[in-house]
Simulated assay, not measured.
Amino acid sequence: MPRLLTGNRLETGDVLWWAGSDWSLHLRDAVAVDDDGEALIARLAPQERINDLVLIDVDPAPDGWRPRSTRERVRAVGPSVRPDFALPSLPVDAI
């Protein structure tokens, strides 16, 4: 099962996804880290202004990835109580 690395930008709280060489605000940019995830967390955690680094389980989807947990699906698109704060390119129904 594929796994993605996610975290939050310390200054703003933005949800970020590891895109292979940098972080992205968009789940569709994320790359699977699979077995390298723990080593990547160990390497990135001390030097990044990103906190709460965690690996999540995902399923492949036609437009990228679909997090397995409801919590991570909500994190991917923005607040469920304020749709006007959602990322414009990621409608809630899409994931």
Rank of each mutant, 00 (worst) to 15 (best):
A30K: 01
W18E: 05
R66D: 11
N51L: 12
D63P: 00
D52A: 15
P91H: 05
D22S: 15
R71D: 05
S21D: 12
L25V: 06
R68I: 08
P88W: 04
A32E: 14
S80G: 12
G7F: 04
A61R: 13
T70V: 07
P67Q: 05
D84V: 08
V33P: 00
G37S: 07
D36V: 04
D84G: 02
S89P: 01
D29P: 00
A94E: 11
P79H: 11
D59M: 11
D63E: 14
R9Q: 15
D52F: 10
P62Y: 03
R82F: 08
L27A: 04
D93P: 00
T70L: 15
A19N: 08
L44K: 05
P67N: 09
V58I: 10
V33F: 01
D93E: 13
S69E: 13
E72P: 00
E38A: 14
E11W: 02
W17L: 04
G13C: 11
L55P: 00
S24W: 09
D93Q: 12
G7E: 05
D57C: 07
P91S: 10
A32Y: 02
V58N: 00
L10Y: 07
G13S: 10
P79C: 12
G37V: 08
S21E: 15
G64V: 06
G37P: 01
D22R: 14
T6Q: 15
A45I: 03
I41A: 03
P62Q: 08
S89E: 14
P91D: 07
R28H: 10
R73Q: 15
V33W: 00
D36R: 14
L16M: 14
I95Q: 05
D14N: 11
R75D: 11
V81T: 08
P79G: 10
A30Y: 01
M1P: 05
W18I: 02
L5S: 02
L90C: 05
A39D: 15
L87N: 06
V74R: 07
A94F: 10
V58M: 03
L90K: 07
L27C: 04
P2K: 08
P62L: 09
T70Q: 15
R9T: 10
R9E: 14
V77F: 08
A45K: 14
P67W: 02
P46H: 11
L40C: 07
D22Y: 07
I95D: 05
W65P: 00
D34V: 02
R43D: 13
R71C: 04
S24A: 11
P88A: 12
P91Y: 09
L40D: 06
R49L: 13
T70H: 12
D57Q: 14
H26N: 15
Q47L: 11
S21N: 13
